[in-house]
């Protein structure tokens, strides 16, 4: 099997690659969203500390 045959997926390229692309996007967004959430929490905590430095004593 050569590469162009591989990418053609027996005529099902759109459906097969569409599925794998969807999976890649969903997995990636999961990681991005989790990271973003952590960053926003950290920002909030830093603000909390600059507002109330005595809390961290």
């Amino acid at each position: 099997m050569n590469w162009s045959e591989f990418f053609a997926m027996g005529g099902y390229a759109l459906y097969v690659w569409g599925s794998y692309a969807a999976a890649a996007i969903v997995l990636l967004l999961n990681v991005v969203a989790a990271r973003r959430r952590e960053q926003s929490v950290r920002r909030e905590l830093q603000n909390l500390q600059t507002l109330n430095p005595s809390d961290s004593e």
Binding site: M9, G10, G11, Y12, Y15, V16, S19, A22
Partner: peptide, 11 residues
């Protein structure tokens, strides 16, 4: 199903 069966490994 031919090559479309590969969708199974994600689905």
């Amino acid at each position: 199903q031919g090559q479309s069966v590969r969708i199974m490994f994600i689905h």
